[in-house]
Design a protein around this nucleic acid. Structure first.
Length: 273
DNA sequence: CATAATGTTGTCAC
DNA sequence: CGTGACAACATTAT
């Protein structure tokens, strides 16, 4: 489940590989991933070229020569692999995007992945409503504080809400909250200034660190290589001792997702502090 | 064979 | 409108 550091890395790599290339082939094994029929999308894309590739949250966006955009979400367990001229795409891929020079990109995911196309000037409901993105200039301490102060929900739900902050998923969030020593169910309104600043520092520092290492080691980049970040201190499991204080890690339900946390480091004190 | 896990939208209640 | 609770979607590993 690639999250912000991985997506950002892949968009950079993709930009250096496919910017300027002309689309000549499109295949999709399941039209549910598309926001139009395969035939329509082929009509839209063929003989257009890609001007640049960038990312927004967990989405990659390829800008086309006519102002249209190609938006890709890898959903869960997704991989996007670049294939040089003459290389065969991996079997089992869901989507194949081929270019006139013989190179191609294949995408595979379990589900919840999307491959959408929007016309020039068109908005996209999922991408255009995304909130603050960490590791960009808009993600300032002031903006982050304002976000927390305006929210009355649990901190984990806020961080997972892509319309408020985008790019953080259920994996990185465990590490982020553990590092910031905040219980996932703690309410935003109960956080002191100091703890908000600590959380801000952790988010920018940790995601930036993972991005610098081209993402987590359990994910693959567009060349099929794992990222360099191995999550050494936070790759914990239920029942394992916390690497910081030794208490046993527990697993709790937080809304529709679950969270691993250390009861020693992340006490649930919603009212105090 | 049942279940958990995963991201996002959508719907319904308060 | 903000919030929470929950179903739905497909697939794979346990």
């Amino acid at each position: 489940m690639p999250e912000l550091p991985e997506i950002k890395s892949m968009a950079l790599q993709l930009n250096s590989e496919i910017a300027g290339k002309e689309i000549s082939r499109l295949y999709c094994s399941n039209e549910k991933c598309l926001n139009m029929s395969l035939a329509d999308m082929q009509d839209h894309l063929y003989s257009r070229s890609i001007t640049s590739v960038s990312s927004r949250g967990k989405w990659m966006s390829a800008d086309l020569s006519d102002g249209a955009r190609l938006l890709i979400s890898l959903g869960m367990g997704g991989y996007l692999i670049f294939h040089g001229k003459g290389e065969d795409p991996r079997p089992g891929h869901r989507i194949l995007l081929g270019f006139s020079d013989g190179t191609s990109v294949s995408v595979s995911f379990w589900w919840f992945g999307y491959f959408h196309c929007t016309g020039p000037g068109q908005t996209h409901p999922m991408v255009d409503s995304l909130g603050l993105e960490p590791l960009t200039e808009q993600f300032t301490l002031q903006a982050f504080k304002k976000l927390i102060r305006n929210s009355r929900s649990e901190i984990k739900l806020l961080l997972l809400n892509q319309k408020k902050i985008c790019g953080i998923g259920n994996f990185y969030i465990q590490d982020l909250l553990w590092l910031a020593k905040i219980h996932p169910k703690e309410n935003c309104s109960g956080l002191s200034e100091a703890r908000i600043e600590e959380l801000y520092t952790v988010i920018t520092g940790y995601l930036g660190h993972a991005f610098g290492l081209r993402g987590a080691s359990y994910e693959l980049d567009i060349y099929g290589n794992p990222g360099g970040y191995g999550s050494p201190e936070c790759g914990y499991r239920e029942g394992e001792p916390c690497p910081r204080c030794g208490e046993k890690i527990i697993k709790i339900k937080t809304g529709s997702t679950s969270s691993f946390l250390c009861p020693g480091c992340q006490p649930f004190n919603n009212t105090s502090n």
